[in-house]
């Protein structure tokens, strides 16, 4: 049964805003990174849906590209968070504020 494209857009935008809300509301950097992944995947969902709608495989390629890049980003993100974990006992982004003004 075909699903109208509008539904995909609605689903992905809900995912996207859940991701944004996660970045704004969570204080653990790991969870914030996961929220960002959610934003990326919302975009991926759109790419796939539009690739199907336009019958253009560029969207699928783009989605693969995003997944690859997101993996790299997660690796680097984890590394940065881990170095921070090493120096602080518990990581709360609200307590990392040496730089300001």
């Amino acid at each position: 049964m075909p699903v109208a494209i509008g539904n995909y857009i609605a689903l992905s935008s809900v995912m996207f805003f859940i991701g944004v809300a996660g970045v704004l509301l969570r204080r653990n950097p790991l969870v914030m990174l996961m929220s960002i992944e959610l934003m990326f995947n919302a975009a991926n969902l759109l790419f796939m849906a539009f690739a199907r709608a336009w019958l253009a495989n560029a969207g699928q390629v783009f989605a693969f590209l995003v997944i690859t890049v997101a993996a790299a980003e997660a690796a680097i993100g984890l590394a940065i968070v881990v170095t921070t974990f090493r120096s602080e006992k518990n990581v709360d982004v609200d307590e990392i504020r040496l730089l300001r003004g």
């Binding site: 970045v23 982004v93 609200d94 003004g101």
Partner: peptide, 17 residues
């Protein structure tokens, strides 16, 4: 302007949002 730079990353994200 400087008072916007609270140093809190979540506040920055809020301004961005």
């Amino acid at each position: 302007v400087r008072s916007l730079e609270t140093g809190l990353v979540r506040a920055y994200a809020l301004v961005l949002a």
